[in-house]
Amino acid sequence: MTTLSNETSRVVRKRIWGAGEVKRHLAYLTMLLPGFIFLVVFAYTPLPAIIMAFKNYKLMMPPRDQWIQNPFVYSLLNSDWSGLKNFQFIFRSPDAAIFLRNTIGYNLLFMALGIVFAISVAVGINELRQRFMAKLYHTILFLPYFLSWIIITYVLYAFIAERGIVNKVMDALGLAHVSVYTMPRAWVFILPLANVWRYAGNNSIIYLATITGFDQELYEAAAIDGAGKWKQFRHITWPLLVPTIILLQILAVGRILNGDFDMFYSLPNGAGAVRNTTLTIDVYVYTALRTGQPLGLPSAAAFFQSCIGFLLVLTTNTVVRKVEPDMAMF
């Protein structure tokens, strides 16, 4: 027995530390290469550019004898530092209050609605007796996720345009026409509605997979003890789902200052009247970038966005780990 295990372990050790091992790692490393190059180029190369948030960026042409010939890199390195001026400028503008409120408010709302609707869908699908129908429903509910926000802008347009469905209904009810593109208040409902419409099916898939993985005996035992469906949900499904919910929310919290740019930018279809209820940081950054404002401003906003997001993920994760180590993400 002992000799055999000794022999195996020697063989294993040989395989782990032998020359073949390096070669195998070489194979692994070449597999990583395409993704690695992508990450270096698209995720890590732009990182130094965040110093632009603290600079008064001006485009300058590098002199001939400079070792950096890229005008952008040269200007980035040689522009004057401006400290926190860019941040001050943004946060003193009246826009700041609007876009912060909108971004954070909508994201919190979306998170809450996301949990409620996704779990409802998942539980409902799981409980239905006709499995074929349940799958069919889920397939259909998942469909909107694959449509772009631009398409949804069109769909929405068919509803709320002057000759749209909403106004037809208003006609039928004998009410006055509404022009939603000029009603800021309406968007507080439209955006969450659109968000649920597009994401409920998709979000439910993880919950559904988690629920189907639960031990059925728990439910059977509860049923024997006379627990109805609601009690089973309240005392079995929900507590077991909490780790999944928290895991997903940690990621969502990190994106609280981001948002679906496409959604906030395209759904209002360029209607300036509803800017108050649809302007988010992303849209602000893009508009500032496009309207030729000094590049330091959108950089500062984007930097703020990234940093707060990162800090929020770390904080939430730390808090969760303190309270319930198993539920933390890392």
Binding site: L39, A49, Y286, A302, S306
Partner: peptide, 24 residues
């Protein structure tokens, strides 16, 4: 971690724009 970090922290739209238009 190298790939995971890119999900947690990114340089933002402006840096992305400049990377694509000025460097790449």
């Amino acid at each position: 971690f190298f790939s995971y970090f890119s999900m947690l922290f990114n340089a933002g739209t402006v840096a992305f724009y400049l990377l694509c238009s000025q460097i790449l």
